[in-house]
Amino acid sequence: MDFVETILNLDRRIIYTIVALLVLIPLIKPFSLPIKPTPEVIGIFREIDKLEAGDNILIAADFDPASKPELMPMLEAVLAHCFERGIKPHVLTLWPSGPGLAQQAIERQAEKYDKKSGIDYCFLGFRYGNVAVILGIVSSITDTFTTDYYGTPTRNMQIYQDVDAVRDMDYILDIAAGATVEGWVVYAAEKAGVKMGASCTAVSATAYYPLLQADQITGLSGGMKGSAEYETLLSGKYGVPKGDATKGMDAQSAVHVFIVLSIILANVCYFISLKREDEERRRA
């Protein structure tokens, strides 16, 4: 079997091995390519940056461990951004397997900026019911989430003395691994008249461009790249150290380049084999 046929019938396991190496090596020894923020991500950053100290932002952390590498850095970066500017984040999740990760992120950032639960931020945790929960907090957060994640009654919290519904929020951000963005747009942002941004996995980003064009969301962050862009913006303006997404970008770059090169190689071989078949047919 010559080279062309070897390539066309390449064992999948060889590709798997190369991909594994290309992920591992840049993680161990990064080559730090520059990251240029796109207008979509700037659309989220700018809106949050416009808010003043004491303003409120609603963050929905609708993801689970499976999409942690893509979306967790975004959550951490946005929380850091809020705390840096004195904005009060209200974090909740519609995914049953979401609270664990959100709790890690919010506790880590709150400790870093010395922020107090119930005063500077509130972690509401999980409630069952997807759209029903969204509709609930549109009329009242403290009625829907009578206690926060830690069991403290929300009605008594200082943070909820002036604020009680989605319309009192100054921005909404949905960090979503599934199809929750539409729900937040239709039932929360549109209904309450609050601007909204979306951060989603790279796979589902394409589906939200129509929302972005219709100005139903101000910005869109897709996957780990979007998170890395947000980290870059944050470190550029406030000097906050970059996080996990930036570290992962080298590995992602390497694998993408490999896939593109392998597609090109496979196609070249495909054409050569077509030509050979043609010649053989002519000879026959």
């Binding site: 390519l33 770059s253 380049v257």
Partner: peptide
């Protein structure tokens, strides 16, 4: 599809910016 896929794969990572 192939060309669009390749362009987006490179365009969505820092290598594209570089």
């Amino acid at each position: 599809l192939l060309i669009a896929g390749c362009v987006i794969m490179i365009g969505r990572v820092p290598v594209g910016d570089w």
